[in-house]
């Protein structure tokens, strides 16, 4: 009984999702590679968020600088993770979000779901991305070349 409780406690612990700076394509490739030993998986779904160089008043966005309320975000992410796992039959789920500066063209969000069949993986990934965008206390500051900035808004 004690052992079971220990396991439960461990699983309830929020998992770190934040990485400093951009998420490298090599990290994403490695993450895919690591799943080759899981022979129960039949489909992966991956969403990659990339920093877009929006032009605002003729100035292109050079980078986005992300900040978070980390303790709250990690607790919220645990809630989201549990909700998604209970709704979809997933083998696994991974989320990585950048903090600090990410240049236009670089990856700032990596969401990865795996399941026996494609539909579960795809639907879970889509819902997960929406929840991350609207429920995680993370803020993006769009930085222009000339050091001016504006705060990003999610649509």
């Amino acid at each position: 009984m004690e052992n079971l409780q220990a396991v439960d406690m461990k699983e309830r612990k929020p998992k770190q999702i934040f990485v400093q700076g951009a998420i490298s394509p090599a990290f994403i490739a490695d993450s895919i590679q690591k799943h080759s030993t899981r022979h129960d998986i039949g489909g992966h779904s991956i969403f990659l968020g990339q920093v877009r160089a929006d032009t605002i008043e003729e100035k292109p966005v050079a980078a986005i600088e992300y900040t978070t309320y980390e303790e709250m975000a990690l607790e919220k992410m645990l809630e989201i993770r549990e909700a998604i796992f209970s709704k979809y039959d997933l083998t696994c789920m991974h989320v990585y979000h950048s903090l600090g500066k990410v240049a236009a063209g670089e990856i700032c969000l990596f969401v990865f779901t795996s399941s026996k069949h494609r539909r579960m993986a795809i639907d879970a990934c889509t819902e997960l991305v929406e929840k991350i965008k609207f429920e995680l206390p993370v803020w993006g500051k769009e930085l222009f070349e000339d050091e001016s900035y504006q705060w990003k808004e999610n649509k």
Partner: peptide
């Protein structure tokens, strides 16, 4: 206590 403006992650 924290004040949180609209979220804009991702």
């Amino acid at each position: 206590i924290a004040l949180l403006p609209p979220f804009s992650g991702g």
